[in-house]
Computed example of a mutant assay.
Amino acid sequence: MKQAIVARTDLGMGRGKLAAQVAHASLSAVEDTSATVRKEWQGEGQTKVVLKGDGERTLFELADRAEREGLPHAVIRDAGRTQLDPGTVTALAVGPGEDRVVDRVTGDLSLY
């Protein structure tokens, strides 16, 4: 099992900002995961991969695919306190879920 987090490359986020947005996405998706899936994923080491997304449209298209696959997912919008305007879509988490199902949604993306 794994979780894929897709972060936008077109925003020029600093490393700390990127890390915070990835963390927000991961936790938000896990909160919407069933207890059974969450326990299994945690028991396997909570595998995560961070991938590149080239823009907001890409993240929403991937979120739609995740929805169709029945995967937990979370789109993150920034609060606007530091580098970005309020409401800027920054990241998407897909899963946790079975590797092959997560890969059907995010398998074509490059590692961040």
Score class of each variant (00 low, 15 high):
R8A: 03
E67R: 14
H24G: 02
G14Q: 05
D85N: 15
V75H: 00
V49F: 06
L51R: 04
G14I: 06
Q21E: 15
A4Q: 00
S110L: 12
G95A: 05
E40Q: 13
E67I: 13
V22D: 00
L71R: 04
D85E: 15
R81M: 14
R68S: 11
A91K: 00
A74Q: 10
D99N: 09
L84K: 03
R65N: 09
M1F: 14
G45C: 06
L84M: 13
D103V: 03
G12F: 05
E61N: 04
H73K: 11
V89D: 02
G55I: 14
R77A: 13
E56Y: 00
T36V: 09
G12L: 08
S110V: 09
D78N: 05
I5F: 03
V102Y: 04
G70E: 15
T88I: 10
V75G: 01
T9C: 12
G12S: 08
V30Y: 08
L109D: 01
V50C: 04
K39R: 12
L51P: 00
T88Q: 07
V37H: 02
R100F: 04
G80T: 14
G14V: 08
K17W: 07
L62W: 03
A63E: 08
R38S: 09
K52P: 00
V101K: 02
M1W: 14
D85L: 15
K52E: 04
R15P: 02
A25V: 12
T90P: 00
D10S: 12
Q46I: 14
P72G: 08
A91L: 03
I76P: 00
T90M: 04
A63P: 00
V75E: 03
L62A: 09
K39V: 11
V49G: 01
V89K: 00
E61M: 08
E98K: 11
R8H: 10
K17C: 05
A19L: 14
V22W: 01
R15G: 14
P96A: 07
A66K: 14
L11N: 04
A19F: 11
E40K: 08
E31I: 08
E40M: 07
D78A: 05
V89C: 05
V75W: 01
D108P: 01
G12A: 04
G12C: 07
R81W: 15
L59A: 06
A23F: 12
R15Q: 11
T36A: 10
A20W: 03
L51A: 03
E56C: 00
D103A: 13
L109N: 01
